[in-house]
Amino acid sequence: MTTADNSTVIDVDRLEQLADIMLPTAHGMPSASEVGAVNSYLDEVLGWRDDLRQPLFEALSALDPATFTVERLSAFLAEDENAYTALTTVVAACYYLSPVVRDRIGYPGQVAKTYDPFAYTEWVAEGLLDPVVERGPIWREAPE
């Protein structure tokens, strides 16, 4: 359980059950619970986005894991958009914080890269722009 200042208690087990239906084991990817997404990252995510706690609580109150399906989730959007957004945002954020998942999709995060700022001379020399230049000006003359 994780508890907020306003005593809104998030039922982690219940959230994990929903998350496993939203993000199940399939197509070579692990489920949410297999990577411990909710258990490992929920506090962190709600620490960053405390505004999601209350609507997440409401989503968990409204959705029963025993009968929950992806189709039910789609219908839930129309019933309570804020709660839907909180649930999908929290589940996705927890899952894609997992290093296992990031490694599987090839995502290192938004990392810094170095490059040669003069490398453009190579593709210019190669002639990549030549067809554009050879067609000539395309701007429209305008009277002063």
Partner: peptide, 15 residues
Amino acid sequence: VWGPDHHVLMGQTFG
């Protein structure tokens, strides 16, 4: 997209 197809979508689009 949620459910098993979520992973298909990510596999086909991410990056």
